[in-house]
């Protein structure tokens, strides 16, 4: 009987703690220092300019927490804030919806946060949000993606053009500046697709007259589509030297096709993102390279910029968090 009871208690505790874990990402920091916050507010009335020993509240609007990369950014911001004793962050998940994100920004403005870190769901759709912040005099720091409205105070992120350029430079060297290549794109019209393509052209296609782009098609970021597409390319272009994929999922799909065709030695496959599976494939030498985008760096960078602006310091309009090319040599560092 007692054992049963114990079991029930244990089970309940687990459920509750699980629930707490799930929520801790967003809510715990919001509720915990409530008392402190009130005190801080009273103080701030008398001294409008925040000093370093006063609590700073920063609203964070992330486009979606269901995707790996934005979630890593959010985690990085949260972890960094937890390490500072006078900074509080409120994380909002827009669930990949522009309207939701706009609402969240408006709510944060109404609350009177000190700064907003915005990871916009769309380049154009969130212009209104930036306008509203400017009107309310709240600094906006954009992270990872930009809005087309450039009135934000600071942009922290990595340029997709750079990742494309890194791939291009890597391939240029690997194939000796000549030969046939194919480019596998993400969903057409997204900034990632457009800018990574631009980077590849800048660094490879436009500078090497002997490099021929024989195919340039989309596999919509999907692994299965990428595999079918690569299979078709391998048949059509027997001289193919490299398949340049705009993300790792597609690269892994293309890699499967290349391996099945027994062309591992003649066709190089490259990706972007440095997801675990891809880094492993780079380490084992199957995937030629991938590009590491630094989520932690972007998140921390955005938070630091926000605090600096609130404290009245000037920051650069654009803070670039560099990509890192992951090859067989340094793959182990990214696992």
């Amino acid at each position: 009987m007692k054992k049963k009871l114990l079991g029930v208690v244990l089970a309940v505790t687990m459920v509750v703690s699980l629930g707490a874990c799930g929520k801790s990402n967003t809510e715990t920091p919001a509720t915990e220092p409530e008392v402190k916050e009130e005190a801080a507010e009273q103080e701030s009335e008398s001294t409008p300019k925040a000093s370093s020993d006063k609590e700073i509240v920063i609203g964070v609007c992330i486009k979606t927490l269901s995707d790996e990369f934005p979630r890593q950014i959010a985690d990085a911001i949260e972890n960094a804030a937890a390490g500072m004793d006078n900074v509080k962050v409120e994380i909002n998940d827009a669930q990949a919806d522009v309207a939701t994100q706009l609402e969240q920004v408006e709510n944060l403005i109404a609350k009177g946060v000190d700064a907003i870190i915005l990871n916009p769901q769309e380049a154009d759709g969130l212009n209104t949000a930036v306008e509203a912040c400017v009107a309310a005099g709240i600094p906006v720091i954009e992270c990872n993606t930009m809005t087309s409205n450039e009135d934000y105070n600071c942009y922290v992120g990595s340029s997709d053009v750079v990742s494309g350029r890194m791939q291009g430079e890597f391939i240029k060297e690997a194939i000796g500046g000549k030969g046939q290549i194919a480019i596998m794109e993400g969903v057409m019209g997204q900034t990632g697709q457009i800018n990574r393509l631009k980077g590849v052209y800048e660094s490879l296609v436009d500078v090497c007259p002997d490099v021929e782009v024989v195919a340039e098609q989309t596999a919509n970021w999907q692994r299965d589509e990428a595999m079918a597409l690569a299979e078709n390319w391998i048949v059509t272009y027997p001289e193919l030297k490299a398949i340049m994929c705009q993300n790792d999922d597609m690269a892994l799909g293309a890699l499967e096709a290349v391996k099945n065709a027994g062309k591992q030695d003649s066709i190089l496959v490259v990706g972007v993102d440095a997801i675990t599976e891809a880094v492993e494939a780079v380490q084992s030498g199957e995937l030629a390279c991938t590009v590491f985008q630094d989520a932690v760096g972007q998140g921390e960078g955005a938070l630091n910029a926000a605090i600096a602006i609130v404290n009245g310091e000037t920051v650069e309009k654009t803070i670039d968090i560099p990509f890192v090319l992951v090859t067989k040599e340094n793959a182990a560092d990214y696992l």
Partner: peptide, 10 residues
């Protein structure tokens, strides 16, 4: 994909 038709048109 064999005919390399522009992705936008596909």
């Amino acid at each position: 994909s064999l005919l390399n038709i522009n992705s936008y048109w596909q």
